[in-house]
Amino acid sequence: MHVMIIEDETSIIDVLEAYLKREGHTVTSETNGRRGLERFHEEQPDFLILDLMLPDLSGEAICTDIRRTSTTPILMLSAKAAEAERIQGMMLGADDYVVKPFSPREIMVRMDAVMRRVKPPSEREEVWSFQQGELVIKPKERLVYKRGGQLHLTPIEYRLLEAMAAHPGWVYERADLLEKVQQDGFYEGYERSIDVHIKNLRRKIEEEPSEPKWIQTVFGMGYKFQGERDA
């Protein structure tokens, strides 16, 4: 797997590179945020480890830019441990968030956890179509189309949509959905963080996010996917 690191502390890069290469990964790194973003778009890595606080271009800005066109898993690093900072990182599209200082082994385990979440099982159906093809999900490719146009969802957003769309009309509590995105036990989310991802998902699939058609809130319980499956 090609892993890119954008981090201004060379000591952290050196340690992570050593561990990643030992695991058989190809590693590229940048200490400059702007150059790192350019190289990301040029090289299209399989995984990004991104520092939140860079001197020239913030990790938030980099993450926002990447999420406009890419669903590449992002592991965000930060010295900020406050809950608000963690929520902000997830809202921007990060798939996991690790607070400094950390052990390199923890990073390896968290990377594996994220990749297991986004890896599609081979037994999934090829195409799920709803409302006469208005919304189409291709589980094997992990692709989602709305009226023929591809949507760019983060791995967590996709997993939430797929879980709910598999059983239209079922009501999922937040704890159920949280379990869907932390089957490995290393995504340090909490039930209310699901609301953040649902909000971001609605922005992408709904015509009017404030009046959702596809993902509806069941007050006091959770969420459900409301779409009629095509034959």
Results as ranks from 00 to 15, higher is better:
102 F>H: 07
69 T>I: 00
90 M>A: 10
76 M>R: 03
67 R>G: 09
101 P>S: 02
81 A>D: 12
105 R>Y: 10
92 L>N: 11
88 Q>W: 09
97 Y>I: 06
105 R>Q: 14
76 M>I: 09
105 R>D: 13
64 T>L: 10
91 M>Y: 05
94 A>S: 14
62 I>P: 03
101 P>C: 00
87 I>G: 00
79 A>D: 07
103 S>F: 11
61 A>S: 13
87 I>S: 06
103 S>K: 13
63 C>Q: 00
86 R>G: 01
76 M>D: 04
71 T>K: 12
77 L>S: 07
78 S>E: 02
90 M>V: 15
86 R>V: 10
66 I>P: 02
84 A>L: 07
102 F>R: 04
69 T>M: 00
90 M>R: 13
87 I>F: 02
100 K>E: 12
93 G>H: 11
61 A>F: 00
76 M>E: 04
94 A>T: 13
91 M>A: 13
72 T>K: 04
63 C>R: 01
97 Y>W: 09
99 V>C: 06
83 E>P: 01
98 V>Q: 02
88 Q>M: 12
71 T>Q: 12
90 M>T: 08
79 A>Q: 11
72 T>D: 06
91 M>K: 15
59 G>S: 06
69 T>R: 10
87 I>E: 14
100 K>G: 08
72 T>I: 15
63 C>D: 01
97 Y>P: 04
88 Q>D: 11
84 A>N: 08
102 F>P: 01
83 E>V: 14
76 M>W: 05
76 M>C: 05
103 S>V: 07
68 R>A: 09
60 E>L: 13
103 S>I: 05
72 T>Y: 08
105 R>N: 12
73 P>Q: 05
59 G>L: 05
69 T>W: 03
68 R>F: 03
83 E>D: 13
74 I>W: 06
88 Q>F: 13
89 G>H: 04
86 R>T: 06
84 A>W: 01
60 E>A: 10
105 R>K: 14
86 R>M: 14
95 D>N: 15
60 E>H: 11
65 D>Q: 13
79 A>I: 11
89 G>A: 14
92 L>H: 14
73 P>R: 04
88 Q>L: 13
91 M>S: 14
83 E>G: 00
85 E>M: 09
98 V>H: 01
79 A>E: 03
95 D>I: 09
62 I>W: 06
80 K>S: 10
104 P>L: 11
61 A>G: 00
88 Q>G: 07
